[in-house]
Design a protein around this nucleic acid. Structure first.
Lengths: 197, 197
DNA sequence: CTGTTAATACCGACCGGATGGTATGTATAA
DNA sequence: TTATACATACCATCCGGTCGGTATTAACAG
């Protein structure tokens, strides 16, 4: 009944429906029906359908960002970031959703949301780059390239897993990624073996 | 005026519009307007809007598949496949389109299209795996994992490039990918240096 | 304690524009 | 005359958003 609580409830319901049926595939009518309310209530709490989408994006994006901050300690490894991305991905119920990408696309079509996400994305990359252990690349440019590589791979893995769940095995892919990336390390051959685990 | 020609024309127009504005963002009315026709004509040549989407998918998918066949020679390298994927991607005008993923998602929602694409996707992976040079992995399982890795990275790269064009530099990412993957090769250290370029 | 006012939270009928699809008619060519 | 390749008008439905109204509660005045 209090506004804040209702908004959270509606956010939760909308989020579930969007993930299940996509943004356009979900009607405002459905959202309020599932929340045992009516459209009047919805438009009392939100200005538009896009508005609630933005709210959902901010929520999720913030979750990613905070988790990212937690891993961002000096000497971090690409694998740490990738695993963080994947764990948040899973915890946010994005994992089972084939519509995740659809919602993302819808989001980036809306200027306000697009700007917000771009900013967050940039911050993520820079944070990643700055914390990455020096042994993964001599120059900052090299390490930044590796950051983007990791992000790209995460995204591709997520998209592919959502689309063909049976084909992709996340665990194996993670191992392969780790194995490949670890070969980048220089001057760590001596102490390297005792370095991970 | 002849049916076959008209269908190709409509396919071309629809394809452009879908890439520009997304599937749902494009109306049948727009398609026929741009082709200087009317809806009557459209529904004479196609059964539905989904029908023309399926046709477009088959067209594109076939292009990918044939290009893949061309690269699939024994001893192939992951980089060859990745470059092929990216070149077709570009040649099919997917590169500039932020809606590519949207269309894909829309496509996989339609059972008929989903089945078709899944089959093609599987074939691609198996073909890739079978041709991959033995030095990239001892067991077939290992090489298959690498194939999926390559596919995933391609997809992630494409998605990311479409979304944040300024951030992602395809060339650098390709180089990094190549460098990483080449470290997998075993027993090629002696003659390895003269092997690529 | 009572009456008035006002803000909050919500209902439900309705609007209006968009849009996929259809039905009917028609010009042209074989 | 018959099939092809369209045009035109129209339908049915969906859906985001609006708007007038209302129940509830709280604050405050008399």
């Amino acid at each position: 009944m209090p506004a804040e609580q209702r908004q959270k409830q509606l956010l939760g319901v909308a989020r579930k429906l969007f993930l299940k049926k996509g943004y356009r595939g979900t009607t405002v009518e459905e959202i309020v029906r599932k929340a045992h309310l009516t459209k009047g209530a919805f438009y009392y709490h939100f200005n538009s359908k896009e508005d609630i989408l933005l709210a959902i994006f901010k929520e999720t994006s913030e979750r990613f960002y905070r988790a990212f901050e937690a891993v961002s300690k000096p000497g971090a490894r690409p694998n740490d970031f990738l695993m963080t991305l994947l764990s948040i991905h899973k915890a946010s119920n994005l994992a089972e959703s084939r519509n995740m990408v659809d919602i993302w696309t819808q989001g980036t079509r809306i200027p306000k949301i697009h700007r917000y996400l771009e900013k967050r994305h940039q911050q993520g990359i820079e944070m990643f780059t700055d914390c990455l252990d020096r042994s993964y690349g001599r120059t900052r440019k090299e390490r930044r390239e590796l950051a983007i590589f990791t992000f790209s791979f995460y995204e591709g893995l997520a998209v592919r897993k959502a689309r063909w769940p049976k084909v992709v095995d996340i665990e194996s892919q993670l191992k392969l990624f780790s194995r490949l990336v670890e070969t980048l390390r220089q001057g760590e051959t001596a102490k390297g073996k005792s370095h991970h685990n």
